[in-house]
Design a protein around this nucleic acid. Structure first.
Lengths: 332, 332
DNA sequence: CTGTTAGCGCCTTCAT
DNA sequence: ATGAAGGCGCTAACAG
């Protein structure tokens, strides 16, 4: 910077002010300003972030700490959103994966704190209730896809309840004359908060439409269990016109079971689901799925974290958009 | 640090040496060393990375720049591996997604270079030939999943050729009496390098077993095109005992087409595939797939990048392990 | 074997 | 409206 200052014939101070866009409040002569800017451009001046950090103890960096992230588009999309938002705010993202190991997690937190990240996003794969590591509690932090009831930290999550309502709306926009069942279990075992909220939304929306939820085919949220429970249901003579699967893997298992029984989607059974994963687009017919807005979550989290207007603890619910396929029988 | 030094009754220099594990080569009195270490512990001393960086222009940070990463477990797994390897070497990962936009990419490169990352991993989703941004060429960089023929930069990629051989081995370990076809196109259009290499491996392994590749059902590597080409093949009276799908999405399309024609996997047709994605485990029957070792790739890339033994440009091929399902008919 | 000294590049109070 | 001076925390010659 001193080179720039010298070349412009001013002191480093003046150069600093100008280069940091504070020429206005410092009321620096426009001519001086131009000279400095020109000199900086000529010299291809680039500020040194380390020096700046040393002085300001700010790093224009945000840390993302997540549990297991492997294999799933969760991380990718979430980081895509976070990374884009960070760019807008001239920050960079540093990542740390705890692999679900609390000790590793603690190390990562320390590491990031040592490095003076400007804030930390604490993210979990599954929407869940967590206990945030002690040292994080005093920091600038926002929870992503999870909440910590004890500490009232700001958090951003999908709007699961509205998502439930959306799923029903998709179904009812079609021709679904018979019973509607949910596939997937509600138990908040494992700590997932999504199930109960989605179910509430589903129930309420159904009720408001003058219909009722016929039942819940309870199973863990995965392909094989879903296959089994739907297969069993059909084998026992069960019948449904509409199925709300609690995620796309459950929907795949459901598709497999329906096929096994010669039932055609959507002619015999309409199916909607949650997640909006790639899988939904690969199925035949393509699955209508209420998407988890991972990228948005990531972006919102970064924005909240970096928002200087310290608006106190708050929980933001991000809308879940529909990825519409053809798994719902169209109204004639 | 000066607090530590004072408390231990030594100068900052001595403290620095000791705290950086250089007491041996400096031949510092063990007693002094203990005092300093103790003082540091008492004071919960943590070095300030910004200051260190300012002085050493090293940041213990590696940048990962990738094109499109969204929606796919590519990024997650690759970053998992990279992040774990980085931890071992006391580094942190900062990420940047170019979204395939060369201008954004250039910005990210500049940003990271400004921040003095210790090296950059340039990664692409699809195995491909790339042209590395100019400013990167003089830097410490390793390519991940791609090569730049012009610059001979070090790179790490899956061992596609051996992968092809592996796929055939899986098939031939089973009972596959009839013809074997490949599904997916080879054209290195789009720049993917994987297809031709896999096909070479497949051909060679088949030949060595005294068999021949019956043909290639050429289609883009995705669900719908694969469905169409296999469906067409069968409709025309085509028949195969073994199918090698060039990725898991192609395999899904193939499964769908086979089902449409009442063919059962693996009883009527054995199928193997490439990718080892989650999808492979979700299908019924579970798909045997030659996996892309994303995590390993990420880890190796970091290690190469940070390996000080400057071993010149080199291309590393990482083995592709098998994710074994039940999509190959067992030999009786 | 340990201390003195200087400086990495930047920001900011205080003068002028 | 601009400049002089000091210091953020750490490392590395260079003495001794």
């Amino acid at each position: 910077m001193s080179d720039v200052a010298r070349r412009a014939g001013v002191s480093a101070t003046t150069a600093s002010y100008i280069l940091n866009g504070r020429s206005a409040q410092m009321r620096i002569a426009p001519a001086t300003q131009d000279r400095v800017l020109k000199a900086a451009a000529d010299l291809r001046y680039r500020p040194n972030p380390s020096a700046r950090s040393l002085r300001t103890s700010t790093t224009r960096t945000v840390g993302v700490i997540s549990d297991l992230v492997a294999g799933g588009s969760f991380a990718s999309q979430m980081l895509t959103g976070a990374s884009a938002a960070a760019r807008m705010l001239a920050h960079l993202i540093v990542i740390g994966e705890s692999q679900g190991d609390p000790q590793l997690e603690a190390l990562l937190v320390e590491e990031m704190l040592d490095r003076h990240v400007d804030g930390i996003i604490y993210a979990t794969l599954a929407t869940s209730e967590v206990s945030v590591p002690r040292p994080l509690r005093q920091q600038r932090v926002v929870l992503l896809n999870c909440v910590d009831r004890a500490t009232q930290l700001p958090a951003v999550l999908p709007d699961e309840y509205e998502g439930g309502r959306t799923a029903v709306a998709e179904l009812l926009a079609g021709e679904v004359p018979g019973e509607i069942h949910v596939v997937g279990e509600m138990s908040s075992e494992g700590g997932s908060l999504a199930g109960p909220l989605r179910l509430d939304g589903i129930r309420d929306a159904l009720r408001e439409a003058g219909r009722d939820l016929a039942g819940v085919l309870s199973c863990p949220w995965d392909v094989a269990p879903a296959f089994d429970v739907v297969d069993g249901f059909l084998r026992d003579g069960g019948r449904a016109a509409g199925l709300v699967c609690l995620n796309d893997r459950v929907a795949l298992g459901t598709f497999q079971a329906l096929a096994e029984h010669g039932l055609v989607v959507p002619d015999d059974v309409s199916v909607v689901s949650f997640d909006g994963s790639e899988l939904a687009g690969w199925l035949r017919p393509r699955l209508t799925s209420v998407a988890i807005p991972y990228a948005d979550l990531g972006a919102r989290a970064v924005e909240m974290l970096l928002d200087t207007k310290e608006q106190g603890p708050s929980v933001v619910r991000v809308p879940m958009p529909v990825a519409r396929g053809t798994s719902v029988l169209r109204a004639r």
